[in-house]
Amino acid sequence: MKNQNSSDEIDLGQLFQLIGKGFDSLFKFILRVFVYLKRNIFILIGLAAIGFAVGYGLNQIVTKRQKTDVIVKPQLESKNYLYDVIDEIQANIDAKDSSFFESIGIEEVDFAGLEITVNRVIEEGTSDRDMQYLELLQSFENTDAIADIVRAELENKSSFNHRITFYYKNKELGIQFAKKVMEYINSSTYFDEVLMISRNNARGRIEQNELLLDQVDKIITNYTNNLASRNNAVSSERIILDNQEQVNIADLFEYKNLLIRDIEIKKLELAEQTEPISIINFGKSHEVQKSFFGKNLVLIPSILIVVFLFVSFLVYLNQKSKTLIL
């Protein structure tokens, strides 16, 4: 037992010695860093000052990029067309194909810093998985595969808008470029024809629904008048038409509401479906905001200081390697 207790005391003593050595090594490391910074403080301050000066000069010389954001909504399954035509335009920008842009009405193009991108606008609080699910449901929006409540949820809360971003350095030419490109995107003859047919169908649907709505109103009015002329309590909630089956009055009111709602939806379609890619908002030109470490005033001093520290570390390793060899 005495031997076991003495062994435990020795083990604990060694443990405390290791902990003490660890703290001592840490303290020495911090002290060495402090001494290193103290010796080179003027060099570091000088590098930072030089970096700030160079960064400021570059900011004055280099032309900053501008951008314009255009929020759009594809109509009639034209989303794939939108992405394809944007890729086509970007490919011609990369190739600096002036003849292509002349063919779409852009006589002068400044390719310096010119870029066009497109991405989906995701609402706050909506994950990518939710958006994929909503897009899947949207493919059935013109069928009876989903309930009216789900369709309403898609129309009201799920945004399938897209953001087209134009980057450029020449503000005047960039704005003109963005307008001409949007005109080119909406110049598809195929979608123009499809839109015309869709709008004609919507107008015809509205006319037919209005005729049916007028007939339903007449039936309900005649039923009400007959009730008032008889001056007695309602014995049945059904209307017996001439040589027809009985019709539930509640079903008539529900049918009327459905007709009204369908008319409203078709009128919204006529208002929205004016172009293959509806422009919701054509933003103003503004400067591209870089991240904090992407700005020259911060980036260049940081690079100079990091390079100096790296060189100092290599010198230190070289000195240590010589002592080890000796």
Rank of each mutant, 00 (worst) to 15 (best):
Q4R: 13
K320P: 03
G283S: 01
G105T: 02
Q66F: 12
K67L: 12
E9L: 14
N231G: 15
L31N: 13
L26R: 07
V85E: 11
K96P: 07
R39Y: 13
S103C: 03
V33D: 12
V306A: 15
K38H: 08
V150H: 05
L259N: 08
Y167T: 01
S127F: 06
I197S: 03
M131S: 09
I277V: 08
L324I: 11
N232F: 03
V54Y: 07
R151H: 02
Q215M: 11
D84G: 12
T165N: 00
D128V: 14
N296L: 14
I149M: 07
V216H: 07
S7G: 10
N170K: 04
S6I: 14
L82T: 03
E9I: 14
Q138V: 01
T63S: 06
V85P: 01
L259V: 09
D97P: 01
D128W: 07
A233K: 10
N232P: 01
V288S: 00
M1E: 15
A233V: 14
V118A: 04
K179H: 08
I116H: 00
E207T: 12
F27Y: 11
I263Y: 03
L326Y: 10
L15N: 07
Q319A: 12
N257E: 13
N225I: 14
F140K: 10
Q4G: 06
N170P: 03
V234E: 10
Y133Q: 13
K256T: 06
L258R: 10
K267Q: 14
F166W: 02
R205V: 06
F177C: 04
L37N: 09
N200Y: 12
N243M: 14
F42L: 12
S99K: 12
V33L: 15
Q246V: 11
A53R: 04
D110N: 15
R199Q: 15
P276I: 01
F34V: 12
I185C: 00
E210W: 06
S6T: 11
I280N: 01
Q176E: 13
K64E: 05
F52C: 13
S312I: 05
L58W: 07
D24M: 11
I219L: 15
V306G: 03
D24P: 02
S78E: 00
L299P: 07
V216N: 12
A202T: 06
A95W: 04
F101W: 02
S198Q: 11
N222L: 06
E108Q: 13
F16S: 08
L211V: 07
Q319K: 13
S103A: 07
A145E: 05
P301D: 10
S285H: 00
I41T: 05
E141A: 12
N318P: 00
Q60R: 06
E77D: 14
E135D: 15
E108Y: 09
F253C: 02
D251F: 08
I303Q: 03
Y81A: 00
Q244I: 06
L82P: 02
K96A: 10
N200S: 15
N119A: 14
A53I: 13
L270N: 09
R65A: 08
N92H: 09
L44V: 12
A91W: 04
V288L: 03
E264C: 04
A228M: 07
S7W: 13
S188W: 00
Y133P: 02
S103Q: 02
S159N: 09
S103E: 05
G283K: 00
E102K: 11
A228S: 08
E108W: 05
F42Y: 09
F166D: 01
L211K: 08
V72R: 00
M1P: 14
S78W: 00
L44E: 04
N59A: 07
R32N: 13
